[in-house]
Amino acid sequence: MFYKPEDGHELAHNPFNAIVTPRPIGWISTRDSEGRDNLAPYSFFNAVAYVPPQVMFASTGTKEDRDNTKDSVAVIRETGVFCVNVVSANLQDAMNASSATLAAGQDEFAHAGLTKAECESINAPRVAAAPAALECKLTQIITLEGQSNYLVLGEVTGVHLDDTCIIDGRFDVTTFQPLARLGYRDYSIVKDVFELSRPDD
């Protein structure tokens, strides 16, 4: 089939959500100027540069108690920092619980039963049990086409790694099995890993 998004797809569910998969999950933690912590998962997330290391996530949608956006973007606008927590397979239920729409200022860490740890280079919490966390300073918030669509870019200023995930000098994803977002309400756990050598290696 072929369809133009502006005309609709005539399917029961939007296929666009399932085309670009799997997608890593950016579990974004922030702290506002009043000291209130926030945590939310974003599946439009990725790393975008090596030097300096940079990441992005996109927020699509809004909450009634925020000005045309969601808690994460509102707090990052205010403070200029955020942390990206990596979601392992054993944290999937907590990640899902943190996606609940709570009132601004309510603590998703507590709602999901998660222990916090403090970041080192920024004033923000992180998920203590996450296999890795990236402390970031905001570089840009770009308004995208459409309603309440924002692209947040940040430079990584600190990296936390669980020592048990470092095998032979490499951060080994098989030790914690990352959770990835597929389409609709579908997820995947990364279990099968293989290596390919490039032609110019």
Results as ranks from 00 to 15, higher is better:
M1Y: 11
G8H: 08
L11G: 12
N14V: 08
P15F: 12
N17M: 14
R23L: 10
P24N: 11
D32H: 09
D32L: 06
E34G: 11
F44G: 03
N46L: 11
P53D: 03
Q54Y: 02
A58C: 15
T69F: 03
T69Q: 13
I76K: 05
I76P: 00
E78Q: 15
E78A: 13
V81R: 06
F82A: 05
V84T: 03
V84K: 03
M95F: 04
M95V: 08
A100P: 04
T101D: 15
L102I: 07
A104V: 10
A110W: 01
T115H: 05
S121E: 15
N123R: 07
A124Y: 02
A128C: 02
A129W: 00
A129I: 00
A130Y: 01
A133Y: 04
E135P: 04
I141A: 06
I142D: 09
L144K: 03
E145K: 10
S148W: 05
N149Q: 12
Y150C: 00
V156N: 06
T157M: 07
D163Q: 12
D163R: 11
I167C: 05
R170N: 12
F171G: 13
V173T: 10
P178A: 07
Y187I: 09
S188K: 08
S188Q: 05
R198G: 13
R198M: 13
D200V: 11
D200L: 13
D201T: 14
